[in-house]
């Protein structure tokens, strides 16, 4: 196994992890969107590395697709939402230092949970899977603690990225059809959420989810 491959892989995985943790810290929406775009690039690099290492042309093609979707299309859509006023995350339910500590705890949990998985095939590729799980958990955490609709979308994208990382690292790429399907799913969900956000904004002048308590039963 070439050393370069391991280094590239770790770099990409680290970048993904870093961007995910940073989403907890940063409040300005435009910066958040940039972080998501950067994470998309890192994910594409990760997939590309795996493809290059395994000489898998289909996977390489997929890396370009991921690059287009996650580094350009989704950030573009998000930016359109975030140009509206009042979108900055004002005060999260859990403050930033506590969120960062929680992220550390989530990472620890992910490493603990994936240990049997890593022990199964201790290659460099599989060693990096806890990163994917951590990101998915951080995404859920963002959904849980952030109030704005845009932040919810970002949490959702984080979850999807986390799942994608785990999928690519453990199986060297799920079948193309499945990956395309899930990517389309995310795209559609983002579109729906974008429209929903605009609607909420138009009706209530605000997108604080805690104000939406009446929509039950």
């Amino acid at each position: 196994m070439s050393n370069q491959f391991v280094q590239a892989l770790n770099l990409a995985a680290g970048l993904i992890l870093l961007t995910a943790v940073l989403t907890l810290w940063i409040r300005r929406v435009s910066t958040l969107v940039r972080l998501i775009a950067l994470q998309g690039v890192a994910l594409a690099v990760l997939v590309g590395t795996v493809a290059w290492h395994g000489h898998d042309q289909q996977l390489g093609l997929l890396a370009f697709g991921i690059l287009a979707l996650k580094a350009f299309v989704l950030p573009y859509l998000l930016r359109r939402v975030s140009t509206q006023p009042g979108e900055a995350e004002t005060d999260p339910l859990v403050n930033v230092p506590a969120s960062l500590l929680a992220a550390a705890a989530l990472a620890a949990i992910s490493y603990a949970v994936t240990r049997p998985l890593v022990a199964l095939v201790p290659s460099a590729q599989v060693r990096a899977t806890p990163v994917g799980l951590t990101i998915a958990l951080i995404g859920l955490f963002v959904l849980l603690t952030r109030r704005r609709a845009v932040s919810q979308v970002i949490g959702f994208i984080l979850i999807d990225n986390g799942i994608a990382v785990v999928a690519f690292l453990t199986t060297s790429g799920v079948p193309l059809v499945v990956e395309l399907g899930s990517a389309l799913d995310v795209l559609l969900a983002i579109l729906v959420l974008q429209i929903l956000t605009n609607r909420i904004q138009a009706v209530f002048g605000d997108t604080d989810l805690d104000g939406l308590r009446e929509l039950r039963d």
Partner: peptide, 22 residues
């Protein structure tokens, strides 16, 4: 009716499941 509470249920269930597995 709080969305955050609902997401919290999912999150909690997931963490408990992880704890049980590991």
């Amino acid at each position: 009716g709080s969305v955050h509470r609902y997401v919290g249920y999912v999150f909690g269930a997931l963490l408990i499941a992880f704890a049980v597995i590991s």
